[in-house]
Write a protein that binds this DNA or RNA. Structure first.
Lengths: 136, 136, 136, 136
DNA sequence: GTGGTCTAGACCACA
DNA sequence: GTGGTCTAGACCACC
């Protein structure tokens, strides 16, 4: 059973936290294509949240193409992860990188510190999706 | 006059977008300590949003210590930017880096691509806040 | 249901009066950690003020750490009340004491009268937060 | 020449800070009945504030009866300080004491700490207006 | 049901 | 001129 960590005080909606963590598991390879996700009822019980919250998280992920929901069967990781248009991918990457850069600068972190933080985050996801490179 | 870019359909609250962009200008040095920000009414007029929306953005930034509001005078960039506790800084950096890493992986971007995106974002902020280093 | 007393002619903003009275109830133990506060709409209706005024009061208290707001659930007294840095606490105490002292002197109240007023105020808050001491 | 200490970042209006400090000097006896206050122009110059701000502070104090303004002559400490009705005095004292008590409790200060803070504040005003008492 | 955001516009307070 | 507060009411997001 996967482990989920919810923070009710963070201001981030619960269903959003769930989506992020499922995406995280998929990106890290802990959830592979075709794997079954926990049932809505069980997950709701374990996390002590309203089942409709899980429904919303699964629904959004299905909408994105990250998972597929089979009526009466359950939810499964999609066989092929969604491919965004090149332009949107670049834009999204740019936005996230900019946010990290701005906040790092504002909190007085040096550029190497910021880059190291990113390297560590990439490493913690494992190498499942990519061959090793000389850069990392 | 600074330029602001608002996206009403992004789901991100307008006042949040404003805060992010002002923080960006401060981090990049386009707004230096003591500089005056646009008046609430003028900015509201230029951006075609309600003045109370600007009030909220300025108020939150003042709360954070990024700017200082002087009644009857205007809003100004704070002389010393706020310093978060070391632990919270590291945690925030880690969270942002993790988000970037996960989304980069999921959209199929390679690790060097993600790191390059961050390097570019840091460079676009300029070197105003840091002495020259051998890293640059 | 808690009782709130608003004075529209005092010059003190309504949202400020609300914050003060909620802080008072928390300090006195009438509102304990985890207790639910009245919903924004209900409180607005009871006090005959605009809901956004309550929103502002609750938002500021949440910012201070006195209460916690859970989207879709309601507002609750925080489990652990915020701890200010020692230096700021002393300075704040000094400022409040000085204000009381100056005004007491100016209105011709004797020093024992002022001290008695403070003793009564402390007693009216009850002993909920402190073990019995020989001082009381 | 009296010394005034203004804090533009405190959120307290400048004219209010001025009023408080003049009241303080009167309560402490540094300004006695009939003493002249600094001229509006000079004080504005020394404090680097707009003269209308001083005008407002002096005007409010004159309205309260703390000072008297003689056209063409200047501002002077009133011969007899204003006496509030007994009921209002008690109420005001109670409100200030309550605020001190609530904030002291909330910041974790003990009751003796709060009372000590008040004793120190009263002592710092000196004994000019009152005979020594066995309580202090 | 809950809280969050935004609008349009009024009126007040400060410098 | 500046910012601060409040209203009345709409629409959205969360649970």
């Amino acid at each position: 059973m996967l482990h989920f960590q919810l923070n009710v005080h963070s201001g981030v909606p619960v269903y959003r936290q769930l989506m992020d963590q499922i995406r995280h598991y998929v990106a890290a390879g802990a959830l592979a294509a075709g794997d079954a996700l926990p049932s809505i009822r069980e997950l709701a019980r374990v996390l002590a949240v309203n089942p409709t919250t899980i429904v919303k998280a699964y629904g959004e992920l299905a909408h994105e193409g990250v998972i597929v929901i089979r009526h009466g069967r359950g939810a499964f990781v999609a066989e092929s992860q969604p491919a965004w248009p090149q332009a949107r991918r670049r834009e999204r990457l740019r936005a996230l990188a900019s946010q990290l850069a701005v906040e790092a600068r504002q909190m007085g972190a040096s550029d190497p510190e910021a880059l190291d933080a990113l390297r560590r985050a990439l490493e913690s996801l494992g190498r499942s999706n990519h061959p090793p490179t000389s850069d990392s």
